[in-house]
Write a protein that binds this DNA or RNA. Sequence first.
RNA 1: UCUGGGGUAGUUUAAUGGUAAAACGCUACGCUGUUAACGUAGUUAGUGGAGGUUCGAUUCCUCCCCCCAGAG
Length: 378
Amino acid sequence: MVKFYPVKKSRWSQARLGILKTPHGEIETPCLVPVATQAVVKTLTSEEAVAAKCQALIANTYHLHQQPGEGVIKRAGGLHQFMHWDRPLMTDSGGFQVFSLGFGKDLGLNKILKKELPFRVKSGQQPKLLNITEAGVHFTSFRDGKRYFLGPKESIKVQKALGADIIFAFDECPPPHADREYLKESLARTHRWAKECLKLRPTRQMLYGIVQGGSDTSLRRESAQFISALPFNGIGIGGEFGHNKSQMKKTLDTVIAELPAHKPRHLLGVGHLEDIPLIIKAGIDTFDCTVPTHYARHGIAFTSQGRLDMAKSLWYKDKNPLDKKCACFVCRGYRRNYLTHLLRAKEITGLKLLTFHNLFFFNTLIEKIRNNIKRGYV
RNA sequence: UCUGGGGUAGUUUAAUGGUAAAACGCUACGCUGUUAACGUAGUUAGUGGAGGUUCGAUUCCUCCCCCCAGAG
């Protein structure tokens, strides 16, 4: 069974150092959990993910349920053996796909709204390709047009078969432009689903409940209290927190103030470089984010000089390493001109090298923050 | 040398007797629990050359140049 041991609490903020013990080893927190949706960190082998200092990965229930199906993975000995990753693993419940393949897809939106929209999602409204019901969500697959049903029972059943160390309750990630009525109903549904998930609570896996409520402070508080009162092993925090950073911090603080100190907290889908110090100081232990891997495949490298678009031709004449201050093998051995060449020539190795560097860079940064908490600086 | 096919954005192709469309490229921007080696936008030609027919030619005709294939 998984256990969380707080090691040190900051004097200056809510930041805390901890150890999350799982049957597949320990996670030193705070920790980034890179995204391995389809049981792989895209472009990397599991060995490379370890070399990039990844302590844990998060795979996806919805996508693995569709392909290859949890039966295949269970018969392969579970997700760890299947993907040759013997460190801690999480699976997301599919709750995010309720948004990303629903209203998110309909309107081309991300979960964090960049600008105000002239309309809101109202109570009773449904996305085009899926139907959200009390029992769960009917998805129409973009892959083959087939209908898939995922509700709290189904999600937990699949996640048990996959066998990750930490699994999440099935929730609805509500659209960022939902009106208060929609948000309220969605939250009530997510709470009912949370209780359903607990009925099927696994014995060897750690089950996290998920706090929702959008950028509405009172709903967030209510949700944090509700989820905290249930016998979950940890708390996930999902959805949107507000359209700007100060709002995000305020909402996050509201939630964390309600959470029990002894349970680990995972922030779902947040982790832009500039967010990381903020969320750690807010008291988050683990968080997952696609940014380092996703941006890498779009040519963006995160460095001590900031974000570099390595697909631009200007780097052809630059013989420097990606980041002089970085100790990763990419920065030790490869130059910017070559990385740019690989990206522009559409050579897949370019994507791998950037992915590796970005993960190493993020993980090193977080390692430094852990050390700073340890020394009492943060 | 003969026969046939063909010369249209940087590239590969499309189109029509009424002043040219797309993909790729290039440039910019976007992308926070990944439908994402992706998305959006912008950019670029006056249609091999010269002449002719026509109100109007990239389109039809003549000659020339170049490329490809086959034959000698």
